[in-house]
Design a binder for these strands. Structure first.
Lengths: 347, 347
DNA sequence: CGTTATCATGGTAACGGTATCATGATACCG
DNA sequence: CGGTATCATGATACCGTTACCATGATAACG
């Protein structure tokens, strides 16, 4: 492969002048600029970013560390991140932690070694060690989707508490009193915030919060399935389910189907996070939609801003609103309901 | 940040010895190994991969260039790629081309400059220029999901022709004679292979292939929507639709709904590629499922094998079978049909 | 005992760019 | 006309690691 020196020799200039042409820098005479471009074309020269990075300390690479791209929510986040980063001249390294703190740390080690310019992190747990690690190595960081307690870092997340509150309030207004809550794991802020919203809605309506109706566990279809079996065995039986995660709602549906319970006739179901394709084919779940693309975009923009002006300033917490979409799974749509119902589809 | 020299000084050895310890190389005395590890811990030393890459010519980075991660099919491919690469000590850069040749070339330029160790490419079009470009720069390549004419490169794809043939044959056996074909763009092998399978099924059944029933266009929901409007206007009206892409099928559903046509009562619909969540909630489309995860995995394994033994050998073409899953959208399930029907769900 | 294999360590020179500083030519100014 | 701003170019050193080669100590061997 040709190097910058080969190009320089061929164009009859110094390597530095070639560097200047490549980077559109400084002052280079038209004559020399032309000759350098010619030489580059003739030699098929391609600059070596690795060498450049070693000297300049910038890799033009970001990392997106999340739990699982297969979740349509994170898929959309990823698309937002990649589009935005790409437009700004950055490439994105993708990492799936599967909610494992150990996996996450392995990835972070590698990313620090690779000298990535910045990290977008959906933390596996809310423990602040990983965040401290990143910060110790002075790598810009934006935390995405989840809060980390005791961490001083930029964070972008959806309004979990508010969304959950609205969903459960809706169920209550539909006449439900016994509402089970299928929550994600303790220690993950989105899960805990959603439980908090659930509690507030019940409390505000004067309904007693019963611990036996709330279950915690990993975000997964299997968990939703098992929790639903247990929740439906609690007497008196709940008339509605609030699932704190899209995949858990799917597991719940499966369990209900096996019990020959109809949704929404026998049990109403609401959940968090959209299932984009379900929405397109047979919209079904009433849910709180987080602005996934916007979240990825915003987070990346924030990160990029950090890269340019490194001056220390207040960490920001951007909370984007969730949108309630009413569909069949919750029963009769309430036409004049006070939520921002933008869609009320399907017979 | 501490460098390898700082560690060496502190441990009282030479930098090379430190390098050997880090890379588990060669012969290093237990005594020195211990002291180096101590020094590393005390200094919080982290090796600089950029410098290593510059010298060793290896970046431990792969690139996955695809059209759109938001398509659940590619999401799953990406997950397969990332899992496999990560296990082998590689990180993955993700690139979305949106089916644009220009975007694709932009990404490839960057990736070559970044000296990625290998590229997994879902080509935007079947023109071989991009492939030539990659090969000119001696970067290992595996083409994914689509064939590129005139390109000598490893390729991993699903059996589009066979899958389409089976789907259309199924429609014919259900009694359909007028079947519209909503195809992806000309010049994309998956689209053309599927049209070929469609043609073969009709021909084998003695049904004339009518050009007016076949439409070509970009893989998108909008295209599926518009094509369906036109296809349904052709007299005599088709009784079934074959969509060559999952998103196009969704567009088709939307168009049919607006025309107040019921599926499958008025029009049967089949399509390519699963919609995973639709499958989990209300399985609906009869379709040919490509083994997306396996494809990503296989492709990455192949690529990695290329990285180690660089000896030139025959390009491989691995064709993975598709699986036909019968669901409601095609009408009455055929119990004793000769396809590998693994699932026949939902009342 | 001399020769050779194995173990252990280090010196030197890259890898391919760019940061920094220096130098010279020309234009402009009061 | 001397001094300064702007334009244009280059020499040198260095970013942090490892490839390559050399050297010495010890063990093994005929």
């Amino acid at each position: 492969m040709a190097t910058i020196r080969d190009v320089a020799k061929r164009a009859g200039v110094s390597p530095i002048t070639v560097s200047r042409v490549i980077n559109n820098f400084d002052y280079v005479s038209e004559e020399n600029r032309r000759r350098v471009h010619e030489a580059i074309a003739e030699l098929g020269y391609v600059p070596n970013t690795v060498a450049r990075s070693l000297r300049s300390k910038r890799t033009n690479t970001l990392a997106l560390v999340l739990t699982d791209v297969s979740n349509p929510f994170f898929t959309t986040v990823a698309r937002g991140v990649e589009d935005t980063a790409s437009k700004a001249g950055y490439t994105v390294i993708l990492c799936n932690t599967d909610e494992s703190e150990a996996e996450q740390q392995k990835y972070l080690d590698v990313l620090i070694q690779k000298q990535v310019d910045g990290i977008l992190l959906v933390p596996a747990t809310s423990s602040p060690e990983s965040v401290r690690f990143i910060q110790k190595h002075a790598t810009p960081l934006v935390i995405l989707d989840r809060r980390v307690v005791g961490a001083e870092a930029d964070t972008v997340l959806g309004d979990s508490e508010g969304g959950a509150h609205e969903l459960v309030k809706l169920l209550i207004e539909l006449g439900h009193q016994r509402i089970a809550c299928l929550s994600g794991p303790r220690g993950v802020s989105t899960a805990e915030d959603r439980v908090a919203g659930y509690r507030r809605a019940l409390t505000e309506a004067g309904i007693r919060v019963e611990a036996k109706r709330i279950s915690y566990g990993p975000f997964s279809r299997r968990t939703g399935y098992e929790m639903t079996q247990r929740a439906m065995a609690v007497q008196p039986r709940p008339t509605a389910l609030f699932a704190g995660h899209n995949f858990m709602a799917i597991g719940a549906m499966q369990a209900l189907r096996e019990m020959e319970m109809r949704v929404p006739e026998d049990v109403a179901v609401v959940c968090f996070d959209d299932l984009p394709l379900d929405f397109l084919t047979v919209p079904f779940f009433t849910m709180a939609a987080q602005p996934a693309y916007e979240m990825g975009k915003k987070a990346t923009e924030l990160l990029l801003a950090r890269l340019v002006d490194e001056g220390p300033h207040e960490p920001q917490e951007i909370v984007l609103p969730t949108e309630i979409v009413i569909r069949r799974s919750s029963g009769d749509p309430l036409v004049n309901h006070n939520v921002k119902a933008s869609v009320a589809v399907e017979p």
